[in-house]
Write a protein that binds this DNA or RNA. Structure first.
Lengths: 342, 342
DNA sequence: AGTATTCATGCAATCGATTGCGCAACTTTC
DNA sequence: GAAAGTTGCGCAATCGATTGCATGAATACT
C-alpha cells in the first residue's frame, strides 16, 4: 500500500515548515499566514491528494471526532431510524459513530464501554440503558459527555431524550375508552427499563382517572419487549379468567405476539379482542388487521440526542435539560373495534 | 475529565521503563521478560485501571483495528443481519466497525470512503456496491484489504461473498412451473447492480430451459429495489396487456409493492396472480398472504465476508476466492397458487 | 536613521505506544 | 578465571499532527 501523503510531504514540496502547512490547512489558524502561502500550500495539498491522519491529530488534540452509539440490537427495527436520526447531525458535523450492539446484556455493555473508551470517543449516545446503570453513571461523572435516548437512567443527571410515555399511554387508553372498551388488559414492559415502568404507571393512573376496573389478573408484566413474551403474556391473560375486550400492549412487538396468541387460540382481532401497540415500527400497516399504535418520533429522538451531545462536547459546562420529552401521536388502524360499553 | 492512565504512569509506579511496561502488556513480546516483572506490571496496570490508547498504538503500528462497513441504508431490513454477521467475527477479533450509510449515492460514497481512509481503517466491507465502481477498485488496488458482500463489483479482483442468484432464481421459476404456471412475468432489479443483472439473466436462461414464452411486455426492469418501484412496475405489467398468472419479483420489496398494486387494482394474490420475492427479509410471514421467497443467508454473508477480510488483513498476499457463493433456499408461503397449466 | 512594533514563519516539544538496538549483568564453557 | 554467549531491560527514535514560543524580516514611528 503506497504511503499516504503527510504534512511533511507537503512541507518538503512547498519548501516551508510542517507547522506552517498545518496552519495553512486549519481554517482557524489560517489567519496569521500570508494569503499567498496559504493558497500555495492548499493547492499542492489538493494536488498531492492529502488526507489528514485523524489518529495523529486525535492523539495530539485529544479529540477523535468520533462518538459511541450503544443500541441493544440493530436488527430490532426500532433502532435503525434512531441511528439515522443521530447520524443526520453527527456526520455533517464531522463526527463518525461507532455503533455497538449490547444485546441488553450488562456484561457485554461493560465490555463495550471499555472498547469505546479505548477508542477515545468524544461522547456516547446510549439508546437503551437500564433504569439503573452505575457503570454508565460513573463514566459520565468522570467527564465523558453522554446522553441517553429512547430510555433513561434514573437517579443521575445524564440528559435523556425520550418520547412522551405518559401522554402516549393516556391517549391510547382514552381512545379505547372512547371506543366503548371498559375492561382493558395491559401487557406491561419489563420493570427494569424506564419505558416499561413509565408506561405501566401511566396505564394505572389513566385507568383510575377513567374509573376503569383493573383486576390484578388483567395486568401482566413481560420480561422482554419481544413477540415471544407478547405471546406468553397473552396466553396468560387468556388463561387467567380475566375478562377483557381489549389488550393495551406496552410496545408493538408484544402486540404482534398478542396477535399470534389470539390466532392460535382461535380468537380474532379485533372481532373478539382489540389490541394496541406502542412505538410505530415499520411494516405494521401491512400486517392485518393493522396495529393501532402510538407513533414515536424515532428519527427526531436520535437527531435531538445527537444535537445535545454535540453541545455538551463543545462546552462541558453547558446546561442541558435533564429530560427532553418529544410528542407522540396515535395512528389508527384496524386492531381496535368500536363496541357498546358493557 | 480525569486523565486516563498511561504506560508512563505504570512505569513510574513500578519503577521500570515505559518500554518494559509495553512489552509486559503485549502477549507476544512478553517472552523476553522475567515472569516476575511481567506479573508485577500486569497487576499494577490492572489496579490502576489501565486502558490502552488505541489512537497512539494505531499511529505507531499503522493498524487501527477498525474496519469500514459500507451499507446503503441501515433502515433497509436486508442489512442489519448482514451487519451482525460481520460483527459476530470482527468484535471477538478485537475489531471495531465504522458503519456508514451510502444511500446508494455515488457522491456520498466517495466522501464516505475518504472518511474511512482518514480514520485509517484496516479494511473495508462494502455491502452494496454498484457493478461498476472505479473509486473502490482504486482504493483496493492501492492495497487496502476489501471485500464486497451481498453484491459484487465487476471487472476487478475484489473478493465477493454473494448468494446463489442463478440458483435461487432457477429454483423459484421451476417452482412456479411445477405449480402449473406457464405465463410468468418478471419484475427485474436495477441493471446497475450485480444482483439485478444476475437475476434477470438467470430468469431468462431458466425460462428458456423450461420453454416458457417470454414476451417483452412481461419483463419490466425497476430503477430501485423498493416498494414504490414494485408498485409502478406491477401497474405497468397490468397495463401492458401481457397475460400472466404469476409475477416473479427480483426482491421482496418489489414483491410487497406488487401486493399493493394488485390490491389497488382489485386483484387478489394468489387467487388472481401469484407473486414471489427474493431475499427473505423479516416480517414477510406476517404479511398476508405470506410471500413465497428465496431465503438468502444474510448473517452468513456478513460473517464470511468478515472472515475473509480478516484473513486479507493478516496477510496481504493470501489467496482469496474471487467469489464465494452461498446457498439459498426456497421458503413456501401463501403467495403462489397451484393451477392447471393453461 | 534608529528603534519599536507587528507579522509571518520556523523550532521543538508533545500526545501515548511501539520497537530496533545496545548495554550491563549473569551464566556457561574450557 | 577469562572469553564467549545469553538474558533482561533501558534508550531513544518514531508514527503524523498540533501549538506555545522564538526569531528574523518588514513596517511604522519618532
Amino acid at each position: 500500500m503506497n504511503r499516504p501523503v503527510t504534512l511533511k510531504d507537503i512541507a518538503r514540496e512547498t519548501g516551508v515548515h510542517v507547522s506552517t502547512v498545518s496552519r495553512a490547512l486549519d481554517p482557524n489558524a489560517r489567519t496569521s499566514l500570508t494569503r499567498e502561502v496559504v493558497e500555495r500550500i492548499r493547492t499542492t495539498a489538493e494536488r498531492m491528494g492529502y488526507r489528514p491522519n485523524r489518529l495523529a491529530s486525535g492523539l495530539r488534540t485529544k479529540r477523535t471526532m468520533s462518538i459511541g452509539l450503544m443500541i441493544p440490537d440493530i436488527e430490532n427495527t426500532l433502532f435503525p431510524p434512531i441511528v439515522r436520526g443521530a447520524e443526520s447531525v453527527l456526520e455533517p458535523a464531522g463526527y463518525t459513530s461507532i455503533i455497538v450492539n449490547t444485546d441488553s446484556d450488562r456484561k457485554r455493555e461493560t465490555k463495550l464501554v471499555d472498547v469505546l473508551l479505548e477508542r477515545g470517543v468524544d461522547g456516547i449516545i446510549h439508546a437503551a440503558p437500564y433504569r439503573s446503570d452505575p457503570r454508565m453513571i460513573e463514566v459520565a461523572r468522570r467527564g465523558l459527555p453522554m446522553v441517553t435516548v429512547n430510555r433513561q437512567i434514573e437517579n443521575c443527571d445524564i440528559p435523556a431524550v425520550v418520547n412522551d410515555d405518559p401522554g402516549g399511554i393516556a391517549m391510547m387508553l382514552r381512545y379505547l375508552h372512547e371506543n366503548g372498551h371498559r375492561r382493558i388488559a395491559h401487557i406491561a414492559g419489563p420493570k427494569n427499563l424506564s419505558t416499561g415502568r413509565a408506561r405501566i404507571e401511566a396505564f394505572r393512573a389513566t385507568a383510575q382517572e377513567l374509573h376503569l376496573d383493573l383486576p390484578d389478573e388483567a395486568l401482566v408484566v413481560s420480561d422482554y419487549f419481544d413477540e415471544q413474551e407478547g405471546r406468553r403474556c397473552t396466553m396468560q391473560l387468556l388463561d387467567s379468567g380475566a375478562e377483557f375486550t381489549a389488550i393495551l400492549c406496552a410496545n408493538d412487538r408484544l402486540a404482534l405476539g398478542a396477535f399470534d396468541a389470539l390466532r392460535r387460540r382461535g380468537l380474532s382481532c379485533p372481532e373478539d379482542v382489540s389490541v394496541t401497540g406502542y412505538n410505530g415500527i415499520p411494516f405494521l400497516d401491512l400486517i392485518p388487521p393493522g396495529l393501532t399504535t402510538i407513533q414515536i418520533p424515532q428519527f427526531d429522538i436520535g437527531r435531538i440526542g445527537a444535537e445535545l451531545l454535540i453541545k455538551m462536547m463543545a462546552d462541558p459546562d453547558v446546561t442541558i435539560p435533564r429530560t427532553t420529552i418529544l410528542p407522540v401521536k396515535l395512528v389508527e388502524r384496524g386492531s381496535v373495534k368500536h363496541i357498546d360499553p358493557a
